[in-house]
Write a protein that binds this DNA or RNA. Sequence first.
DNA 1: ATCAAACCTTGATCTGTGTCAAATCGCCGG
DNA 2: CCGGCGATTTGACACAGATCAAGGTTTGAT
Lengths: 246, 246
Amino acid sequence: MTTVIPIVSQNLRAACSACSLQELCLPAGLASDEMSRLDEIVNRKRPLKRGDYLYRAGSTLQSLFAVRTGFFKSCVMHDDGREQVAGFHMAGELLGMDGIGSGKHMCDTVSLEDSEVCEIPFGELEQLSRDIPTLQQHFHRILSREIARDYGVMLLLGSMRAEERLAAFLLNLSQRFAARGYSSKSFLLRMTRNEIGSYLGLKLETISRALSHFQDEGIIAVQNKSVEIKDADRLRAMVGQCAGHQ
Amino acid sequence: MTTVIPIVSQNLRAACSACSLQELCLPAGLASDEMSRLDEIVNRKRPLKRGDYLYRAGSTLQSLFAVRTGFFKSCVMHDDGREQVAGFHMAGELLGMDGIGSGKHMCDTVSLEDSEVCEIPFGELEQLSRDIPTLQQHFHRILSREIARDYGVMLLLGSMRAEERLAAFLLNLSQRFAARGYSSKSFLLRMTRNEIGSYLGLKLETISRALSHFQDEGIIAVQNKSVEIKDADRLRAMVGQCAGHQ
DNA sequence: ATCAAACCTTGATCTGTGTCAAATCGCCGG
DNA sequence: CCGGCGATTTGACACAGATCAAGGTTTGAT
């Protein structure tokens, strides 16, 4: 179909090949000349150290960001200082889409390990997507998938019990690592227990206890940040079979 | 700026003028010739009775829908039958955006009262938005606002206590009614206590008790489906001031 | 290498919501 | 107008998960 010319599109193609899951990436399915046009508007990759903010809530949205490498969290903040992790993001994912509506970012996005992103000026992306229908369609799908993901999180927060939420979370991470060519069985938790808890609407002690419990049951092995899934079937069975529907 | 020609755009303009909030509506800010092009692709309005499904989870996405009149809920369903209300929708809002990514609707959307929608074939909308930059930008903003809204729901589900959630919910409804020219003080709850509970991640008994409590405190007056907000300030104070951060 | 700070685990206890149950209300169809 | 069924309210009680507390461990800066 489309001939791949390796020289072209160093930036985005790298972000894309970092994950082997084409679907996530903006330029998937573009012809190589289209790809190079997209590549032209992408600013040079930008490195972030752990703890660096990619953008802050309230700041003006100029660009979207494609994660090349690393790991991010997005947090929405309440007036009173309460903070809720709205998502974790890895290679190949697009960040900043929540800010298009108002022109201002709605959340803080922070690097959880040394990371690299491509910056994509939003105005130019919009312009280009008028010329390249494939790009336009792809961008719409990515926006829509974020909405669908959010619905999943609502389901999780609204109707699952603690251990069920954690099981769903681990399976989700596992699957996303697998999609990027990493092990689905064994991976590192880039975030703290507190951050997992915030994302899942639970307290850090509850996360810690649930992990310990899973380990006692032989479902996983945990050691600090590293997790090994020993019985994925049992983990899957935990999601959606909790007798008590809360 | 743009001359408004009333004859043009009967369908969408009606959906739009149903709410006085331009921002929500797809054709906001279009020139009248652009408006008429948009209007051409919009299928005739479609009436729904209370309880009718606008679309079902898993069905192929053909169109998006703009609510002209009425009230809807969207529910995501878990494998085991658990159901979570993901949102309530009123005049001027666009429905179906969660299904663009996969080409299939991710949720059921059901009419909660006799309603009317405009059907907007998605492929043609995508086509047209390449020709009309204003439309494209507007569509992007609407998609993005849905993401931002979802982040708000996550904050609510993940870090607010029961009465705080309900207060936030009532204020949100109040504001949306006001934006459409209805009273912000006095309105009908189109959904059941059970549906409110599902949306807020609570049980119907908790909703009922919280409503009764608000009434005892003189913050609202409830009578079946009808609510009157008597002290909006106190309601606002409840959101974000709950000492216990859960 | 050392030290402080952040992070994690585990136990004991408390509490906000869920669960169960029963009575009442209100609406729709006949 | 009546009967029945779903929706709502309210109470009593149970329990999942929060809170409080105390140690222990890891990390990262100097």
